[in-house]
Design a protein around this nucleic acid. Sequence first.
DNA 1: CGGCTCTCGTTACCATCGGAAACCACGTAT
DNA 2: ATACGTGGTTTCCGATGGTAACGAGAGCCG
Lengths: 115, 115
Amino acid sequence: MVLRMRTKVKALPGCPMSRCMALLGGCWTPEVLWSLSDGPRRFSELRRDIPAISAKVLTGRLRDLEERGVLARHVMPTSPPTVEYELTSLGQELLPAIRSIVEVGSRLLLRDSPA
Amino acid sequence: MVLRMRTKVKALPGCPMSRCMALLGGCWTPEVLWSLSDGPRRFSELRRDIPAISAKVLTGRLRDLEERGVLARHVMPTSPPTVEYELTSLGQELLPAIRSIVEVGSRLLLRDSPA
DNA sequence: CGGCTCTCGTTACCATCGGAAACCACGTAT
DNA sequence: ATACGTGGTTTCCGATGGTAACGAGAGCCG
């Protein structure tokens, strides 16, 4: 009788990860948050920051994130009207996770191309 | 002429985030990595840890992650044969990001239900 | 005056992806 | 003999994302 059951191994406790992923889940969301991390940015700036994202998906993400209270949308009364997106305080709270992802990525890049 | 162009605002520097997201991107990937973070686990254990994931997607994720060198698959010569998945050293390197996500989630949960 | 550009999107269409449920082969327990 | 647990695969369908075209409104250029 070899390695039959491990009923003792119980599932990890109630998931804080789900709570966080509910906010930064979805395609391109971490990139958008990262791009907004050092100040408000406009729609077209976000598109330039993240060239691979399509306008449709960017619109969708911004709407989602606004609805969840992660960012705020400000329409400026200029001509042509410009729109700025800015992290709310809830959005700011997500930044440690985003920064950590970026840090890990940086470390991996360094290893890829050593000095 | 109001707020016409902000050419000075240049895109963020070359993206380490992409490097990291290439590994932990994909549905359920963070959950899987988190579940593997404190030791090797078997297929059915992962399913129990993450009840919402379907077998199909879990299989797919595990194959992807194995291919990218994030985890290793070990078939144990038992009966019935059991399969264990374990983080590689590359996988270990992703853990800081995962832990940070979990931390942020914990903080959010605490705020949701204050003492 | 006619057309081009810039703003921030929307729309239609299609490919891919994820979710749900059924199924499978093998071996063991009852 | 029957049922169950192992680690998946298969099928079908709805949701999601990518591509490309179009839109209104204002400014700019010749």
